[in-house]
Simulated scan of single mutants.
Amino acid sequence: MSDQQIFFHNSTDGWTVLGEGSRRRVLLHTDELMVVEFAFEKGGIGALHNHPHVQASYVAEGRFEVTVGDKVDKLAAGDSFIVPSNVVHGVKALEAGRLVDSFTPHRADFLP
């Protein structure tokens, strides 16, 4: 095995404040895959955007209005969604909550 980090402990901080009531921290990554946690205050926005990475998201807590392309749905803890490459997407936190997102390949723009 390489020197690649394979475990993440929740006591690690590493949050980046994004504004609009949200912040993120990269939990783990390889060149092929990245796991990122996003935390939102009630009313927090993940602005509409797109990227070449495929994204799978899990609602760890809270409720969100999620837009993926021309589809909009309300999701709660335990729900999930997938975003194909280059599809416009975003979220609005209907209550405080957290999303755990996986990206393939990794998001180099999220690294220091």
Rank of each mutant, 00 (worst) to 15 (best):
A93M: 06
E41S: 15
D73F: 04
D13P: 10
H53C: 02
G97Y: 00
K74F: 08
S85A: 10
G19R: 14
Y58M: 11
F110V: 02
K42F: 14
I45R: 13
R98A: 11
F103W: 03
G69K: 00
V35C: 12
G46N: 05
V66G: 02
G14H: 06
H53L: 12
T30K: 11
K92C: 09
L33C: 12
R23N: 03
R98C: 11
D31I: 10
A56S: 11
V72E: 08
T16V: 06
V54W: 03
V66N: 02
Q5S: 14
T104Q: 11
D73P: 05
R24G: 06
G21K: 00
G46D: 10
A93V: 03
S80T: 04
D3N: 11
S22A: 14
G78D: 04
F8A: 06
M34P: 13
T104M: 07
L27T: 10
V87F: 01
R107A: 04
K92S: 12
H89C: 00
A56V: 10
G21S: 07
S80A: 10
S102C: 10
A96N: 03
H49W: 05
R107K: 05
S2I: 08
E61N: 15
D101M: 01
H49I: 09
H49M: 07
H49V: 09
